[in-house]
Design a protein around this nucleic acid. Structure first.
Lengths: 339, 339
DNA sequence: GGCTGGCACTCACACGGACCGAGTGCCAAT
DNA sequence: ATTGGCACTCGGTCCGTGTGAGTGCCAGCC
């Protein structure tokens, strides 16, 4: 039916206008700004239907319409064309990210870049340890009984952990320990490390057994347990730009500091590499009920490393932000492939 | 003169009342809530003098008085008694910080703790590299010509840096390089590393010379240059609690993300270990004009490692916050002394 | 000389009514 | 099915008023 088609056009127009102006949009303004070929009265009829179906709503009786979460959802799924990045934006991505000297630097630049491109809060997850493999383990003796373990993964992460041993450790033992650990773990997926530990303790030279047990336990505890996934957040100042009510802003800031909530959202990426959009209530977390999350996984080749994305108000430029998130993820993936 | 003394009492009362209520305080309320032994009329006279001297001001004609930056300054310098922490607070500090497993963990807990104790934004600086010494240098080969340098300092920091070499490096060369670097740098202050490099290149075995030169340059570049000082920020949600106007909030959030501004403030600590308070305009940075910074250096023994502190509105509980900042800094200093 | 009570004055703010205009829903006409 | 017309609703703004907190000043008192 032609009606349905036009109604969708009307919804699209409402979303676009509302996103750009932040004012509830009425039938007259709609007829003026988009040539839909029909009069405001007809648009009113369409709007009544759209409202009945739950795609739009009016804040109060004498105001225009505003998209609902469901309306945005339909817009994202069926009405938005992918907006290609401008040449300037592509250029900006390269300029911003090239010259990074280590993983920390890359991700720090990424989060700033993403925040700047989208004018939203950007979040970037460190490459998950569980999907990483051990490249090298270093053991440094701090005091007699205190060891510092340094783990270097093939994804470029460097993690540290202090281990207190029950008794003092000799210098030679430290070297032996280092060799033993590296022999056992190098190249191993961290997810498998737990199962390797028991074997390792059994096969270790007797004088090292207690030591290996303690150190391995610490290693597994910190590195394999969930919760060791880290998040970088940037661009929180962009929140203040958009929110009028700081009371509404606070739970969001808290959620961002909490990390774990956002982490779950960001790390649940589509394996096919598609950009995921969660709108308002879909987030299933109170503090994010008024917010949308646009996220995607990044990685080198077919290997997923982690997720990144943005958090912003439901009233956001979805096509533009989706394009930016995707482009940045691709570039970061390439960059990390070189490590 | 007895007058002066009483006027100061009046100022103190104004600051205390305003901090706790956030309402401009009038002469009558002041006479009621504090037994100053004089009538409101007398207090009015004192207030007139205080206003003339610039310690207080009135937002509008028919309102009470509010302390100025200068008023807060006088309060902090001469009128506030050190407020000892409650037993519960001391307990909280221990409970919060004990069980930290590495430097990252310690500082992360510290910033959360400080934010919670003061209900302000907390900032903690990583131990400055320039005052640290090298404990160990690790070299890991990523690809033929790509090396990952890992620096472990005696303050527990672990820093990484990727170095691209002009030509492929042999496995043995990597081991030699590691040995050479450690022999040269271990125990050396990072501030002195720059001068050591030239010697090192000259004395290195000929086949390593080019390699040592490239790697050392990278090392010095990243680690000795300023700007490698890092900052952890926490409790930004507390900003939303206090601010009414998000427009006023934004520059603050930006400054906190900028890091460099706050870093300068935090790292300028008193060598005597005293708590430093910067009030409003004293901060000499536009975004912080409405904010106060309470900071102190932390360290183990007489060795300064870095700074930590809080950022909040000028209207804050200075005695309480100063006590909290000092107590946390002491505890962190002790904790890191054990590493 | 300093303190106090009294008093007139000033304003920010809250309240309430009037007005306005954007936007709607409905209906009859095309 | 679309359209123009029309009555209606209701949030936002403007304006006048009242109120009350707080002040500055002054004359009297200790």
């Amino acid at each position: 039916m032609a009606h349905d088609e036009r109604r969708l056009q009307v919804l699209r127009a409402i979303v676009q206008d509302f996103v750009s102006t932040n004012d509830p949009v009425g039938s007259k303004a709609l007829a003026e700004r988009h040539d839909l070929g029909v009069s405001p009265a007809t648009i009113r009829n369409d709007m009544a239907v759209l409202e009945e179906q739950g795609y739009i709503t009016q804040p109060h009786t004498s105001a225009g319409r505003v998209p609902t979460d469901k309306g945005y959802r339909l817009f994202v799924d069926r009405l938005s064309a992918v907006k290609p990045l401008s040449a300037a934006e592509r250029k900006a991505i390269e300029r911003f990210l090239d010259g990074a000297v280590d993983l920390h630097d890359v991700l720090g630049r990424t989060v700033r870049l993403l925040a700047q491109l989208t004018s939203q809060v950007a979040v970037v997850q460190y490459p998950t340890l569980s999907r990483s493999a051990v490249r090298h383990l270093e053991v440094v003796q701090l005091t007699g009984s205190r060891l510092l373990l340094v783990l270097i993964t093939d994804t470029g992460r460097v993690e540290q952990r202090i281990v207190d041993c029950p008794v003092d450790v000799g210098r030679d033992d430290v070297a032996d320990l280092r060799a033993t650990l590296n022999a056992a773990f190098t190249g191993a997926k961290l997810a498998d490390a737990g199962s390797k530990v028991t074997d390792l303790v059994d096969t270790a030279p007797p004088h090292l057994r207690a030591l290996v047990a303690v150190v391995s336990a610490a290693l597994v505890e910190t590195l394999v347990e969930p919760g060791e996934d880290r998040l970088i957040v940037g661009g929180t100042a962009n929140l203040a730009r958009v929110a009028v009510d700081p009371g509404h802003l606070r739970p969001l800031l808290e959620a961002l500091e909490e990390q774990v909530v956002v982490l779950r959202l960001i790390s649940e990426v589509d394996s096919g590499g598609a950009v995921l959009v969660r709108i308002g209530e879909e987030n299933a977390h109170e503090a994010l009920a008024g917010a949308s999350v646009v996220s995607v996984g990044y990685g080198s080749g077919d290997r997923a490393l982690g997720g990144l994305g943005i958090v912003g108000p439901t009233r956001m430029d979805y096509p533009g932000n989706m394009a930016a998130v995707r482009a940045v993820a691709r570039y970061v993936g390439q960059l990390l492939a070189g490590s």
